[in-house]
Simulated scan of single mutants.
Amino acid sequence: MSVKTVAVIGCGIGRSHIVEGYVPHPDRFRVKAICDLNEERLQTIGDEFGIEQRTTSFKELLADESIDIIDICTPPGLHLEQVLDALAAGKHVVCEKPLTGSLKGVDRIIEAEKHARGALMPIFQYRYGDGIEKAKRIVEAGIAGKPYVGSVETFWLRTGEYYSVPWRGKWETELGGVLVTHALHLHDMMLNLMGPVAKVFGRVATRVNDIEVEDCASASLLMQNGALVSLSCTLGSQEQISRLRLHFENVTFESSHGAYTPGKDPWKIIAANDAVQARIDEVIGDWQPVAPRFTTQMAHFHDFLCGKGPLPVTTKDARRAIELVTAIYQSSDSGEEIALPVGPESPKYATWRARTR
């Protein structure tokens, strides 16, 4: 098995990538280098994991031919140019969410990928865990049947202390609010199980914190398959939960309520009758436990790099999630329902920052 060398750029959430994504797979990955502008954090993380190569220079790592993968964990406003630079340098790239802050930016990345030697994998780690992966297997087996209705709730808490970090809460550097940096996870999980969106009506507001971006939002979706889905999210919940409840013809799924582990068991999987339950048991009765979050996503990424499986998350997946954000922002500003796909004709295609508070 080929061991891939990794440089982690940004040691905040980057530490979680190391702990969950790379340390559990010593036969697949070796974190060779880390990069951070905070010298104290750089040294602390380097000492913790025995990483000798430590630098404040992103360009230095792009030029290092011994590095296979650039893992971008920097503030969101830096993602677009760093992804493009890493692809141009011939590296494989992992990038935290949001991949970028507009559909125009995503489309620039998609165009760059066509000419790149390396592959890009956006991060959507909440797709991985026993609960959601069982649900996905049941849906893909055709057991769930027609999708009816779903609700997705991202009820988290972020206070002024969270926004004391200079880049947070600003359009230029965080790129958006609760829709972009928090609820995007749950919304991707829903899309992964319910399919693409046809129409969106949404509202956003800034009610919890004194910030530029939104911290409350709600939306009503019509899916392409005819199902109806409601989304609601806030950063002002005194109890933090993440919850999906999805109703199909033959099965109702409800996720665990762990704010940051909604893909893990226990999930409720409620069959319509004994016959449906028997079919479910055939599909997941021999289930082998799946490691949650980054551990499984990175394992699948290594399989892809070795030609043993598909790319687990693609830029098209990231575009679909960002397209939903774009439609909600556009609907909130216009007061109108927005039909997807959203293209260059949208006033929000190139930027979200013109939103009216």
Score class of each variant (00 low, 15 high):
T56K: 15
K59A: 09
E172H: 14
V204A: 12
G307C: 06
I34L: 11
C216Q: 11
F49G: 04
T100P: 01
K136G: 10
Y260I: 12
D215E: 03
T296A: 05
V197N: 10
H79P: 05
T74P: 07
E249H: 04
V251L: 08
H187I: 14
R108G: 03
L246M: 04
A119D: 07
S218N: 10
W287T: 02
K114P: 12
Q238H: 14
P266V: 02
V139W: 03
E161W: 14
H302Y: 06
A198I: 00
T206M: 09
G90K: 06
A89C: 01
L244Y: 05
A63N: 13
P312E: 10
F124N: 13
E113F: 00
K348W: 13
I132C: 00
E345Y: 07
V19Y: 12
C306W: 07
L78I: 09
R353N: 15
N225Q: 02
A275W: 11
R28G: 12
S332D: 08
R279E: 07
G307K: 10
F29Q: 04
L175S: 12
D317E: 08
A217F: 15
A89R: 02
V325K: 04
D303E: 13
K170R: 15
R30P: 01
K91W: 11
A205M: 05
G77W: 03
